[in-house]
Design a protein around this nucleic acid. Structure first.
Length: 545
RNA sequence: GCGCCCGUAGCUCAGGUGGAUAGAGCGUCAGCCUUCUAAGCUGAGGGUCGCAGGUUCGAAUCCUGCCGGGCGCACCA
Protein backbone atom coordinates (compact mmCIF):
# COMPACT_ATOMS: atom_id res chain seq x y z
CA UNK A 1 0.00 0.00 0.00
CA UNK A 2 2.65 2.50 0.95
CA UNK A 3 4.20 2.12 -2.51
CA UNK A 4 0.95 2.99 -4.25
CA UNK A 5 0.36 5.93 -1.97
CA UNK A 6 3.92 7.16 -2.41
CA UNK A 7 3.49 7.02 -6.17
CA UNK A 8 0.21 8.89 -5.98
CA UNK A 9 1.79 11.57 -3.82
CA UNK A 10 4.74 11.90 -6.18
CA UNK A 11 2.30 12.43 -9.02
CA UNK A 12 0.58 15.20 -7.10
CA UNK A 13 3.96 16.81 -6.51
CA UNK A 14 4.51 16.84 -10.26
CA UNK A 15 1.08 18.33 -10.88
CA UNK A 16 1.88 21.08 -8.39
CA UNK A 17 5.08 21.85 -10.23
CA UNK A 18 7.54 20.20 -7.87
CA UNK A 19 8.77 17.18 -9.74
CA UNK A 20 11.24 15.07 -7.83
CA UNK A 21 10.39 16.65 -4.49
CA UNK A 22 11.89 14.62 -1.66
CA UNK A 23 9.22 13.83 0.86
CA UNK A 24 8.77 11.24 3.55
CA UNK A 25 5.97 8.72 3.81
CA UNK A 26 6.26 6.98 7.13
CA UNK A 27 4.41 5.01 9.75
CA UNK A 28 3.88 7.46 12.59
CA UNK A 29 5.07 6.44 16.02
CA UNK A 30 1.86 7.78 17.47
CA UNK A 31 -1.18 5.72 16.48
CA UNK A 32 -3.27 8.88 16.71
CA UNK A 33 -1.45 10.10 13.61
CA UNK A 34 -2.88 7.42 11.37
CA UNK A 35 -1.33 4.43 9.63
CA UNK A 36 0.78 6.45 7.24
CA UNK A 37 1.79 10.09 7.24
CA UNK A 38 3.61 12.39 4.86
CA UNK A 39 5.38 15.71 5.17
CA UNK A 40 4.85 16.51 1.48
CA UNK A 41 2.85 19.67 2.19
CA UNK A 42 5.67 21.09 4.28
CA UNK A 43 8.19 20.24 1.61
CA UNK A 44 6.11 21.98 -1.05
CA UNK A 45 5.17 24.98 1.08
CA UNK A 46 8.09 27.05 -0.16
CA UNK A 47 7.50 26.45 -3.88
CA UNK A 48 3.78 26.90 -3.47
CA UNK A 49 4.33 30.08 -1.47
CA UNK A 50 1.54 29.07 0.87
CA UNK A 51 1.23 27.86 4.44
CA UNK A 52 1.81 24.08 4.72
CA UNK A 53 -1.70 23.36 5.87
CA UNK A 54 -3.18 25.13 2.87
CA UNK A 55 -0.83 23.16 0.62
CA UNK A 56 -1.96 19.99 2.35
CA UNK A 57 -5.54 20.79 1.41
CA UNK A 58 -4.51 21.26 -2.24
CA UNK A 59 -2.67 17.96 -2.17
CA UNK A 60 -5.67 16.10 -0.83
CA UNK A 61 -7.78 17.78 -3.49
CA UNK A 62 -5.46 16.54 -6.22
CA UNK A 63 -4.73 13.13 -4.75
CA UNK A 64 -6.17 10.30 -6.78
CA UNK A 65 -6.34 6.97 -4.99
CA UNK A 66 -8.04 3.73 -5.95
CA UNK A 67 -11.30 3.31 -4.12
CA UNK A 68 -11.28 1.24 -0.97
CA UNK A 69 -7.68 1.78 0.01
CA UNK A 70 -7.78 4.77 2.32
CA UNK A 71 -10.55 5.10 4.86
CA UNK A 72 -9.79 8.54 6.20
CA UNK A 73 -7.34 11.42 5.79
CA UNK A 74 -6.50 14.30 8.05
CA UNK A 75 -4.35 17.42 8.02
CA UNK A 76 -2.57 17.70 11.30
CA UNK A 77 0.09 19.55 13.22
CA UNK A 78 2.26 21.93 11.20
CA UNK A 79 1.04 20.38 7.91
CA UNK A 80 1.31 16.61 8.04
CA UNK A 81 -1.20 14.58 6.09
CA UNK A 82 -2.29 11.46 7.92
CA UNK A 83 -3.88 8.45 6.27
CA UNK A 84 -5.91 5.64 7.74
CA UNK A 85 -5.98 2.41 5.75
CA UNK A 86 -9.30 0.90 4.80
CA UNK A 87 -10.17 -2.54 6.15
CA UNK A 88 -10.19 -3.98 2.63
CA UNK A 89 -6.63 -2.86 2.20
CA UNK A 90 -5.58 -4.65 5.39
CA UNK A 91 -7.43 -7.79 4.39
CA UNK A 92 -5.61 -7.81 1.12
CA UNK A 93 -2.30 -7.35 2.95
CA UNK A 94 -3.12 -10.34 5.14
CA UNK A 95 -3.82 -12.47 2.10
CA UNK A 96 -0.56 -11.26 0.61
CA UNK A 97 1.47 -12.36 3.64
CA UNK A 98 -0.05 -15.82 3.62
CA UNK A 99 0.31 -16.20 -0.13
CA UNK A 100 4.00 -15.26 0.03
CA UNK A 101 4.66 -17.46 3.06
CA UNK A 102 8.37 -18.17 3.48
CA UNK A 103 9.04 -15.56 0.79
CA UNK A 104 7.21 -12.75 2.58
CA UNK A 105 9.55 -9.82 3.13
CA UNK A 106 11.81 -10.81 0.24
CA UNK A 107 12.66 -8.30 -2.47
CA UNK A 108 14.01 -8.39 -5.98
CA UNK A 109 15.85 -5.08 -6.12
CA UNK A 110 19.22 -6.79 -5.85
CA UNK A 111 18.70 -9.08 -8.82
CA UNK A 112 21.66 -9.23 -11.14
CA UNK A 113 24.08 -7.85 -8.55
CA UNK A 114 26.89 -10.07 -7.32
CA UNK A 115 28.15 -9.42 -3.82
CA UNK A 116 31.14 -10.81 -2.01
CA UNK A 117 30.94 -10.64 1.78
CA UNK A 118 34.22 -11.42 3.45
CA UNK A 119 34.20 -11.93 7.20
CA UNK A 120 35.89 -13.57 10.19
CA UNK A 121 39.14 -14.04 8.18
CA UNK A 122 41.06 -14.71 11.37
CA UNK A 123 44.64 -15.97 11.25
CA UNK A 124 44.81 -19.76 11.56
CA UNK A 125 46.95 -19.44 14.66
CA UNK A 126 44.49 -20.11 17.44
CA UNK A 127 40.91 -20.48 18.54
CA UNK A 128 38.20 -17.96 17.67
CA UNK A 129 37.28 -15.52 20.39
CA UNK A 130 34.04 -13.68 20.98
CA UNK A 131 34.98 -10.76 18.75
CA UNK A 132 35.21 -13.13 15.80
CA UNK A 133 31.78 -14.38 16.80
CA UNK A 134 30.33 -10.93 16.40
CA UNK A 135 32.02 -10.53 13.04
CA UNK A 136 30.75 -13.95 12.01
CA UNK A 137 27.18 -13.28 13.04
CA UNK A 138 27.21 -9.87 11.38
CA UNK A 139 28.79 -10.99 8.12
CA UNK A 140 26.47 -13.93 7.82
CA UNK A 141 23.40 -11.83 8.59
CA UNK A 142 24.42 -9.13 6.11
CA UNK A 143 24.91 -11.84 3.49
CA UNK A 144 21.46 -13.28 4.25
CA UNK A 145 19.83 -9.88 4.07
CA UNK A 146 21.44 -9.26 0.70
CA UNK A 147 20.22 -12.64 -0.54
CA UNK A 148 16.78 -11.90 0.83
CA UNK A 149 16.70 -8.75 -1.27
CA UNK A 150 17.66 -10.56 -4.46
CA UNK A 151 21.45 -10.22 -4.55
CA UNK A 152 23.73 -13.08 -5.42
CA UNK A 153 26.09 -13.48 -2.50
CA UNK A 154 29.37 -15.30 -1.91
CA UNK A 155 30.41 -15.74 1.71
CA UNK A 156 34.16 -15.68 1.87
CA UNK A 157 36.93 -16.23 4.40
CA UNK A 158 40.43 -14.93 3.72
CA UNK A 159 43.02 -17.31 5.07
CA UNK A 160 46.35 -15.75 6.03
CA UNK A 161 48.35 -18.92 5.51
CA UNK A 162 51.53 -17.20 4.36
CA UNK A 163 53.87 -14.90 6.16
CA UNK A 164 55.86 -14.65 9.32
CA UNK A 165 53.12 -15.46 11.78
CA UNK A 166 52.67 -18.84 10.16
CA UNK A 167 56.43 -19.46 10.50
CA UNK A 168 56.09 -18.73 14.22
CA UNK A 169 53.09 -21.03 14.42
CA UNK A 170 54.99 -23.85 12.73
CA UNK A 171 57.99 -23.37 15.02
CA UNK A 172 55.73 -23.26 18.06
CA UNK A 173 54.04 -26.49 17.07
CA UNK A 174 57.40 -28.10 16.40
CA UNK A 175 58.50 -27.04 19.90
CA UNK A 176 55.38 -28.67 21.37
CA UNK A 177 56.08 -31.80 19.38
CA UNK A 178 59.56 -31.93 20.90
CA UNK A 179 58.02 -31.38 24.31
CA UNK A 180 55.58 -34.22 23.76
CA UNK A 181 58.50 -36.43 22.80
CA UNK A 182 60.08 -35.68 26.15
CA UNK A 183 62.63 -33.14 25.03
CA UNK A 184 63.10 -29.58 26.16
CA UNK A 185 61.07 -27.24 24.02
CA UNK A 186 61.53 -23.56 23.46
CA UNK A 187 58.67 -21.55 22.06
CA UNK A 188 60.31 -19.04 19.72
CA UNK A 189 60.27 -15.31 20.20
CA UNK A 190 56.90 -14.09 19.00
CA UNK A 191 55.58 -17.65 19.02
CA UNK A 192 52.29 -19.01 20.28
CA UNK A 193 52.15 -20.12 23.91
CA UNK A 194 48.54 -21.24 24.06
CA UNK A 195 47.86 -24.72 25.39
CA UNK A 196 45.93 -25.69 22.27
CA UNK A 197 49.19 -26.36 20.44
CA UNK A 198 50.01 -29.06 23.03
CA UNK A 199 46.86 -30.85 22.02
CA UNK A 200 47.78 -30.40 18.37
CA UNK A 201 51.27 -31.79 19.00
CA UNK A 202 49.84 -34.91 20.61
CA UNK A 203 47.57 -35.32 17.63
CA UNK A 204 50.48 -34.95 15.23
CA UNK A 205 52.48 -37.67 16.96
CA UNK A 206 49.49 -39.95 16.97
CA UNK A 207 48.77 -39.45 13.28
CA UNK A 208 52.31 -39.19 11.93
CA UNK A 209 54.00 -41.60 14.33
CA UNK A 210 56.52 -41.02 17.12
CA UNK A 211 59.34 -40.82 14.59
CA UNK A 212 57.96 -37.50 13.43
CA UNK A 213 59.70 -35.83 16.37
CA UNK A 214 63.06 -37.12 15.14
CA UNK A 215 62.86 -35.41 11.75
CA UNK A 216 65.51 -32.85 10.95
CA UNK A 217 64.39 -29.50 12.31
CA UNK A 218 63.94 -27.92 8.92
CA UNK A 219 61.72 -30.65 7.58
CA UNK A 220 59.83 -30.96 10.85
CA UNK A 221 59.00 -27.26 10.89
CA UNK A 222 58.07 -27.35 7.23
CA UNK A 223 55.60 -30.16 7.80
CA UNK A 224 54.34 -28.55 11.00
CA UNK A 225 53.45 -25.52 8.95
CA UNK A 226 50.95 -27.44 6.86
CA UNK A 227 49.67 -29.49 9.77
CA UNK A 228 49.21 -26.52 12.11
CA UNK A 229 47.28 -24.46 9.59
CA UNK A 230 45.08 -27.43 8.76
CA UNK A 231 44.32 -28.28 12.37
CA UNK A 232 43.60 -24.69 13.33
CA UNK A 233 41.34 -24.25 10.33
CA UNK A 234 39.47 -27.42 11.18
CA UNK A 235 38.89 -26.21 14.70
CA UNK A 236 37.76 -22.81 13.53
CA UNK A 237 35.40 -24.43 11.06
CA UNK A 238 33.97 -26.62 13.78
CA UNK A 239 33.27 -23.59 15.92
CA UNK A 240 31.79 -21.65 13.03
CA UNK A 241 29.65 -24.59 11.99
CA UNK A 242 28.24 -24.98 15.46
CA UNK A 243 27.45 -21.30 15.21
CA UNK A 244 25.63 -21.83 11.93
CA UNK A 245 28.19 -19.99 9.80
CA UNK A 246 29.46 -21.54 6.61
CA UNK A 247 31.61 -20.16 3.81
CA UNK A 248 31.38 -20.62 0.07
CA UNK A 249 35.02 -19.78 -0.48
CA UNK A 250 38.14 -20.03 1.66
CA UNK A 251 40.59 -17.77 -0.15
CA UNK A 252 44.22 -18.58 0.55
CA UNK A 253 46.92 -15.95 0.74
CA UNK A 254 49.52 -18.58 -0.13
CA UNK A 255 47.60 -19.35 -3.30
CA UNK A 256 47.86 -15.70 -4.27
CA UNK A 257 51.63 -15.96 -4.03
CA UNK A 258 51.70 -19.33 -5.77
CA UNK A 259 49.88 -18.20 -8.86
CA UNK A 260 52.10 -15.15 -9.28
CA UNK A 261 49.48 -12.55 -8.45
CA UNK A 262 51.97 -10.47 -6.48
CA UNK A 263 54.19 -9.38 -9.40
CA UNK A 264 51.07 -9.02 -11.55
CA UNK A 265 49.51 -6.62 -9.11
CA UNK A 266 52.75 -4.76 -8.72
CA UNK A 267 52.93 -4.39 -12.51
CA UNK A 268 49.33 -3.21 -12.60
CA UNK A 269 50.06 -0.44 -10.10
CA UNK A 270 53.36 0.47 -11.68
CA UNK A 271 51.73 0.72 -15.10
CA UNK A 272 49.46 3.38 -13.71
CA UNK A 273 52.50 5.30 -12.53
CA UNK A 274 51.45 5.11 -8.91
CA UNK A 275 54.49 3.49 -7.37
CA UNK A 276 57.87 4.95 -6.53
CA UNK A 277 61.10 3.85 -4.90
CA UNK A 278 62.44 5.56 -1.85
CA UNK A 279 64.96 4.48 0.80
CA UNK A 280 65.27 1.14 -0.92
CA UNK A 281 61.57 0.38 -0.58
CA UNK A 282 58.76 0.42 -3.14
CA UNK A 283 55.79 2.61 -2.24
CA UNK A 284 52.25 3.15 -3.45
CA UNK A 285 51.17 6.76 -3.71
CA UNK A 286 47.99 6.29 -1.68
CA UNK A 287 47.95 9.96 -0.65
CA UNK A 288 46.65 10.72 -4.15
CA UNK A 289 43.55 8.75 -3.21
CA UNK A 290 42.63 9.96 0.24
CA UNK A 291 45.10 8.19 2.51
CA UNK A 292 47.06 10.36 4.92
CA UNK A 293 50.44 8.88 4.03
CA UNK A 294 51.96 6.78 1.27
CA UNK A 295 52.34 3.06 1.99
CA UNK A 296 55.11 0.57 1.48
CA UNK A 297 54.47 -2.36 -0.84
CA UNK A 298 57.93 -3.93 -0.83
CA UNK A 299 60.27 -3.39 2.06
CA UNK A 300 63.93 -2.52 1.61
CA UNK A 301 64.81 -6.10 2.56
CA UNK A 302 62.93 -7.27 -0.52
CA UNK A 303 59.97 -8.87 1.29
CA UNK A 304 56.43 -7.64 0.84
CA UNK A 305 54.20 -5.97 3.37
CA UNK A 306 50.76 -7.39 4.01
CA UNK A 307 49.32 -4.53 2.06
CA UNK A 308 50.39 -5.88 -1.32
CA UNK A 309 48.82 -9.35 -1.07
CA UNK A 310 45.72 -7.64 0.31
CA UNK A 311 45.53 -5.52 -2.82
CA UNK A 312 46.16 -8.58 -4.98
CA UNK A 313 43.36 -10.36 -3.13
CA UNK A 314 40.92 -7.53 -3.84
CA UNK A 315 42.01 -7.43 -7.47
CA UNK A 316 41.16 -11.11 -7.53
CA UNK A 317 37.71 -10.47 -6.11
CA UNK A 318 37.19 -7.81 -8.74
CA UNK A 319 38.37 -10.15 -11.49
CA UNK A 320 35.98 -12.82 -10.31
CA UNK A 321 33.20 -10.50 -11.39
CA UNK A 322 31.77 -9.16 -8.15
CA UNK A 323 29.95 -5.87 -8.39
CA UNK A 324 30.50 -5.13 -4.73
CA UNK A 325 32.71 -6.47 -1.99
CA UNK A 326 31.97 -5.94 1.67
CA UNK A 327 34.75 -6.61 4.17
CA UNK A 328 33.68 -7.09 7.77
CA UNK A 329 36.60 -6.06 9.96
CA UNK A 330 37.17 -5.64 13.67
CA UNK A 331 37.57 -2.16 15.09
CA UNK A 332 41.28 -2.79 15.58
CA UNK A 333 41.67 -2.78 11.78
CA UNK A 334 39.72 0.34 10.97
CA UNK A 335 42.94 2.29 10.48
CA UNK A 336 43.59 0.01 7.53
CA UNK A 337 40.49 1.12 5.63
CA UNK A 338 41.80 4.32 4.01
CA UNK A 339 44.80 2.61 2.42
CA UNK A 340 42.82 -0.26 0.95
CA UNK A 341 40.18 2.16 -0.28
CA UNK A 342 42.97 4.23 -1.79
CA UNK A 343 44.32 1.16 -3.55
CA UNK A 344 40.87 0.42 -4.99
CA UNK A 345 40.65 3.97 -6.29
CA UNK A 346 44.18 3.75 -7.65
CA UNK A 347 43.10 0.74 -9.67
CA UNK A 348 40.19 2.71 -11.04
CA UNK A 349 37.47 0.58 -9.51
CA UNK A 350 34.07 2.20 -9.01
CA UNK A 351 33.76 4.00 -5.70
CA UNK A 352 30.95 1.69 -4.59
CA UNK A 353 32.94 -1.47 -5.32
CA UNK A 354 34.68 -1.63 -1.96
CA UNK A 355 32.89 -1.28 1.33
CA UNK A 356 33.86 -2.08 4.90
CA UNK A 357 31.66 -2.77 7.89
CA UNK A 358 33.57 -2.18 11.10
CA UNK A 359 32.43 -4.18 14.08
CA UNK A 360 33.28 -2.76 17.50
CA UNK A 361 34.56 -4.68 20.48
CA UNK A 362 32.58 -7.07 22.63
CA UNK A 363 32.63 -6.95 26.42
CA UNK A 364 31.40 -10.13 28.04
CA UNK A 365 29.56 -9.46 31.30
CA UNK A 366 28.72 -11.97 34.02
CA UNK A 367 27.13 -11.02 37.32
CA UNK A 368 27.56 -7.36 36.41
CA UNK A 369 31.32 -7.82 36.08
CA UNK A 370 33.34 -7.82 32.91
CA UNK A 371 34.87 -11.19 32.09
CA UNK A 372 38.41 -10.19 31.26
CA UNK A 373 39.96 -11.56 28.15
CA UNK A 374 43.68 -11.74 27.95
CA UNK A 375 45.46 -13.38 25.09
CA UNK A 376 48.78 -13.08 26.89
CA UNK A 377 47.77 -15.24 29.80
CA UNK A 378 46.03 -17.62 27.44
CA UNK A 379 42.90 -17.27 29.57
CA UNK A 380 40.19 -15.84 27.46
CA UNK A 381 36.67 -16.71 26.61
CA UNK A 382 36.67 -18.42 23.26
CA UNK A 383 33.72 -18.38 20.93
CA UNK A 384 33.35 -22.07 21.67
CA UNK A 385 33.07 -21.42 25.42
CA UNK A 386 30.44 -18.82 24.73
CA UNK A 387 28.34 -20.97 22.42
CA UNK A 388 28.47 -23.88 24.81
CA UNK A 389 27.18 -21.65 27.55
CA UNK A 390 24.43 -19.79 25.71
CA UNK A 391 23.62 -21.96 22.72
CA UNK A 392 24.09 -20.76 19.14
CA UNK A 393 20.78 -18.93 18.86
CA UNK A 394 21.31 -16.68 21.87
CA UNK A 395 24.93 -16.01 20.91
CA UNK A 396 24.00 -15.00 17.38
CA UNK A 397 21.09 -12.89 18.48
CA UNK A 398 23.10 -11.00 21.08
CA UNK A 399 25.85 -10.28 18.58
CA UNK A 400 23.27 -8.88 16.16
CA UNK A 401 21.02 -6.91 18.47
CA UNK A 402 23.21 -3.82 18.59
CA UNK A 403 24.51 -1.58 15.85
CA UNK A 404 27.85 -2.92 14.68
CA UNK A 405 29.56 0.39 15.26
CA UNK A 406 28.74 0.61 18.92
CA UNK A 407 30.49 -1.48 21.51
CA UNK A 408 28.57 -4.46 22.73
CA UNK A 409 27.96 -5.52 26.28
CA UNK A 410 27.26 -9.23 26.06
CA UNK A 411 25.28 -10.09 29.17
CA UNK A 412 25.88 -13.80 29.77
CA UNK A 413 23.31 -14.01 32.53
CA UNK A 414 20.62 -12.56 30.30
CA UNK A 415 21.61 -14.66 27.29
CA UNK A 416 21.26 -17.88 29.29
CA UNK A 417 18.09 -16.86 31.08
CA UNK A 418 14.93 -18.77 30.20
CA UNK A 419 12.61 -15.84 30.72
CA UNK A 420 10.89 -13.18 28.74
CA UNK A 421 13.57 -10.71 29.77
CA UNK A 422 15.80 -12.53 27.32
CA UNK A 423 14.98 -11.07 23.90
CA UNK A 424 15.84 -14.23 21.97
CA UNK A 425 13.66 -16.30 24.20
CA UNK A 426 10.92 -13.69 23.97
CA UNK A 427 10.89 -13.67 20.17
CA UNK A 428 11.14 -17.44 19.82
CA UNK A 429 8.42 -17.89 22.41
CA UNK A 430 6.12 -15.69 20.36
CA UNK A 431 6.66 -17.99 17.42
CA UNK A 432 6.11 -21.10 19.54
CA UNK A 433 2.90 -19.64 20.90
CA UNK A 434 1.52 -19.02 17.45
CA UNK A 435 2.32 -22.58 16.56
CA UNK A 436 0.76 -23.78 19.81
CA UNK A 437 -2.60 -22.45 18.70
CA UNK A 438 -2.57 -24.73 15.68
CA UNK A 439 -1.32 -27.65 17.71
CA UNK A 440 -4.19 -27.30 20.15
CA UNK A 441 -6.67 -26.78 17.35
CA UNK A 442 -5.33 -29.83 15.52
CA UNK A 443 -5.03 -27.74 12.38
CA UNK A 444 -2.19 -27.56 9.89
CA UNK A 445 -1.28 -23.84 9.80
CA UNK A 446 -0.56 -24.11 6.09
CA UNK A 447 -4.15 -25.14 5.49
CA UNK A 448 -5.63 -22.11 7.22
CA UNK A 449 -7.78 -20.05 4.88
CA UNK A 450 -6.49 -16.57 4.16
CA UNK A 451 -9.76 -15.31 2.80
CA UNK A 452 -11.37 -14.01 5.96
CA UNK A 453 -13.59 -11.18 7.09
CA UNK A 454 -11.39 -8.72 8.91
CA UNK A 455 -14.32 -6.61 10.02
CA UNK A 456 -15.26 -9.55 12.20
CA UNK A 457 -12.23 -8.83 14.37
CA UNK A 458 -13.44 -6.96 17.40
CA UNK A 459 -10.25 -5.92 19.19
CA UNK A 460 -7.90 -3.04 18.34
CA UNK A 461 -5.04 -5.48 19.04
CA UNK A 462 -6.03 -7.51 15.97
CA UNK A 463 -5.53 -4.58 13.64
CA UNK A 464 -2.44 -3.36 15.42
CA UNK A 465 -0.76 -6.74 15.05
CA UNK A 466 -1.66 -6.97 11.37
CA UNK A 467 -0.34 -3.49 10.66
CA UNK A 468 2.94 -4.44 12.27
CA UNK A 469 3.16 -7.47 10.01
CA UNK A 470 2.72 -5.29 6.94
CA UNK A 471 5.81 -3.28 7.92
CA UNK A 472 8.11 -6.28 7.65
CA UNK A 473 9.15 -5.86 3.98
CA UNK A 474 10.23 -2.28 4.66
CA UNK A 475 12.39 -3.51 7.54
CA UNK A 476 14.17 -6.18 5.49
CA UNK A 477 14.79 -3.70 2.68
CA UNK A 478 16.22 -1.05 4.97
CA UNK A 479 18.28 -3.53 7.00
CA UNK A 480 19.82 -4.87 3.78
CA UNK A 481 20.48 -1.44 2.29
CA UNK A 482 22.06 -0.13 5.46
CA UNK A 483 23.69 -3.47 6.29
CA UNK A 484 22.17 -3.22 9.74
CA UNK A 485 20.73 -6.49 11.01
CA UNK A 486 19.93 -4.88 14.35
CA UNK A 487 17.00 -3.20 12.65
CA UNK A 488 15.54 -6.65 12.26
CA UNK A 489 16.10 -7.75 15.85
CA UNK A 490 14.47 -4.53 17.00
CA UNK A 491 11.49 -5.14 14.76
CA UNK A 492 11.16 -8.73 15.91
CA UNK A 493 11.11 -7.63 19.54
CA UNK A 494 8.39 -5.10 18.79
CA UNK A 495 6.44 -7.71 16.90
CA UNK A 496 6.92 -10.28 19.66
CA UNK A 497 5.61 -7.77 22.19
CA UNK A 498 2.48 -7.19 20.12
CA UNK A 499 2.12 -10.91 19.54
CA UNK A 500 2.26 -11.76 23.22
CA UNK A 501 -0.19 -8.97 23.99
CA UNK A 502 -2.57 -10.13 21.31
CA UNK A 503 -2.25 -13.74 22.39
CA UNK A 504 -3.16 -12.79 25.88
CA UNK A 505 -5.99 -10.47 25.05
CA UNK A 506 -7.54 -12.14 22.03
CA UNK A 507 -8.68 -15.71 22.18
CA UNK A 508 -8.65 -17.61 18.95
CA UNK A 509 -10.18 -21.02 19.53
CA UNK A 510 -13.77 -21.25 20.58
CA UNK A 511 -14.66 -17.75 19.39
CA UNK A 512 -17.54 -17.18 16.96
CA UNK A 513 -16.73 -18.78 13.60
CA UNK A 514 -15.83 -15.62 11.67
CA UNK A 515 -13.64 -14.38 14.51
CA UNK A 516 -11.89 -17.69 14.90
CA UNK A 517 -11.27 -17.95 11.16
CA UNK A 518 -9.88 -14.44 10.98
CA UNK A 519 -7.67 -14.91 14.01
CA UNK A 520 -6.33 -18.22 12.77
CA UNK A 521 -5.30 -16.44 9.60
CA UNK A 522 -3.71 -13.69 11.65
CA UNK A 523 -1.85 -16.25 13.76
CA UNK A 524 -0.64 -17.94 10.63
CA UNK A 525 0.60 -14.67 9.18
CA UNK A 526 2.30 -13.73 12.44
CA UNK A 527 4.04 -17.07 12.55
CA UNK A 528 5.26 -16.53 8.99
CA UNK A 529 6.78 -13.16 9.76
CA UNK A 530 8.44 -14.29 12.99
CA UNK A 531 9.83 -17.38 11.27
CA UNK A 532 11.12 -15.39 8.29
CA UNK A 533 12.80 -12.84 10.52
CA UNK A 534 14.46 -15.49 12.66
CA UNK A 535 15.55 -17.40 9.57
CA UNK A 536 17.23 -14.37 8.02
CA UNK A 537 19.24 -13.93 11.19
CA UNK A 538 20.26 -17.58 11.16
CA UNK A 539 18.15 -18.50 14.19
CA UNK A 540 15.77 -21.37 14.71
CA UNK A 541 12.04 -20.76 14.93
CA UNK A 542 10.93 -23.44 17.40
CA UNK A 543 7.38 -24.80 17.36
CA UNK A 544 7.49 -25.34 21.09
CA UNK A 545 9.79 -24.39 23.92
C1' G B 1 49.32 15.32 18.27
C1' C B 2 46.24 13.08 14.04
C1' G B 3 42.17 9.76 12.29
C1' C B 4 37.73 6.65 13.02
C1' C B 5 33.63 5.01 16.38
C1' C B 6 30.72 6.10 20.64
C1' G B 7 28.27 9.63 24.53
C1' U B 8 20.13 9.65 24.66
C1' A B 9 15.91 7.56 31.39
C1' G B 10 19.03 4.32 37.35
C1' C B 11 21.09 0.13 33.64
C1' U B 12 21.34 -1.87 28.44
C1' C B 13 20.18 0.45 24.06
C1' A B 14 16.71 2.21 19.63
C1' G B 15 15.72 6.65 17.05
C1' G B 16 20.67 9.86 13.40
C1' U B 17 19.91 11.36 4.65
C1' G B 18 16.04 17.52 10.07
C1' G B 19 9.73 17.28 11.25
C1' A B 20 4.24 16.24 15.43
C1' U B 21 4.56 15.45 22.95
C1' A B 22 12.43 11.95 22.27
C1' G B 23 11.06 5.74 22.59
C1' A B 24 11.74 0.28 24.16
C1' G B 25 13.36 -3.51 27.47
C1' C B 26 15.05 -4.21 32.31
C1' G B 27 15.00 -2.01 37.21
C1' U B 28 11.84 1.16 40.74
C1' C B 29 6.86 2.37 42.65
C1' A B 30 1.32 1.46 42.89
C1' G B 31 -2.56 -1.68 41.70
C1' C B 32 -4.73 -6.08 39.24
C1' C B 33 -4.76 -11.37 37.68
C1' U B 34 -3.75 -16.63 39.39
C1' U B 35 -8.15 -17.75 33.75
C1' C B 36 -5.32 -20.56 30.15
C1' U B 37 -3.03 -21.18 24.49
C1' A B 38 2.58 -21.60 31.60
C1' A B 39 6.19 -17.75 32.24
C1' G B 40 0.56 -12.35 32.64
C1' C B 41 -2.08 -7.25 32.73
C1' U B 42 -2.75 -1.87 33.85
C1' G B 43 -0.78 2.53 35.43
C1' A B 44 3.02 5.91 37.53
C1' G B 45 7.61 8.07 38.12
C1' G B 46 12.04 8.79 35.65
C1' G B 47 15.50 13.15 30.28
C1' U B 48 19.79 20.27 30.22
C1' C B 49 19.56 13.76 24.01
C1' G B 50 27.97 15.05 27.00
C1' C B 51 28.87 20.81 26.89
C1' A B 52 28.90 25.47 24.02
C1' G B 53 27.99 27.97 19.67
C1' G B 54 26.04 27.95 14.48
C1' U B 55 22.61 26.75 10.09
C1' U B 56 17.02 26.32 9.79
C1' C B 57 10.18 27.92 9.94
C1' G B 58 11.88 23.47 12.79
C1' A B 59 18.00 20.04 15.43
C1' A B 60 18.89 14.02 19.43
C1' U B 61 19.64 14.20 13.96
C1' C B 62 23.51 18.78 9.91
C1' C B 63 28.26 22.19 10.78
C1' U B 64 32.31 24.08 14.18
C1' G B 65 34.86 23.91 18.80
C1' C B 66 35.50 21.66 23.42
C1' C B 67 34.89 17.46 27.30
C1' G B 68 34.72 12.16 28.31
C1' G B 69 35.32 6.77 26.73
C1' G B 70 37.05 3.06 23.03
C1' C B 71 40.15 1.71 18.88
C1' G B 72 43.90 2.82 15.59
C1' C B 73 48.04 5.79 13.83
C1' A B 74 55.20 0.76 11.11
C1' C B 75 59.76 -0.64 5.72
C1' C B 76 54.27 -5.38 12.14
C1' A B 77 51.10 -9.15 10.90
Amino acid sequence: MSDALRAALAKVAVDLGAEGAEFVLERPKDAGHGDLATNLAMVLARVQKAPPRAVAARILEALDLPAGTIEKTEIAGPGFINFWLATDELASALRGIIAAGPGYGAHTFGEGLRYNVEFVSVNPTGPLHVGHGRGGALGDAIASLLEWTGHTVTREFYLNDAGVQIDRLAESLWARVQEAAGRPAVIPEGGYHGGYLRANAAQVLEQEGRAFADLPVEEGVRRCRVLAVRMQREEQDRDLASFGVRFDVIASEQAIYDRGAIPETLALLAARGLTFEQDGALWLRTTDFGDDQDRVLRKSDGTFTYFLPDIAYHVDKHDRGFDHVIDVWGADHHGYVPRVRAAMRALGYPEAFFDVSIVQLVKVMRGGEEVKMSKRSGEFITLRDLIEETGPDAARYFFLMRRADSQLNFDLDLATSQSDENPVFYVQMAHARMHGIFRVAGVDPDEVDADVRLDALPAPEDRELLKKLTAFPEITARAAQEREPHRLTGYLEDLARLTHGWYHKCRVLGEPTEVERARLALARATRIVLANGLTILGLTAPDRM
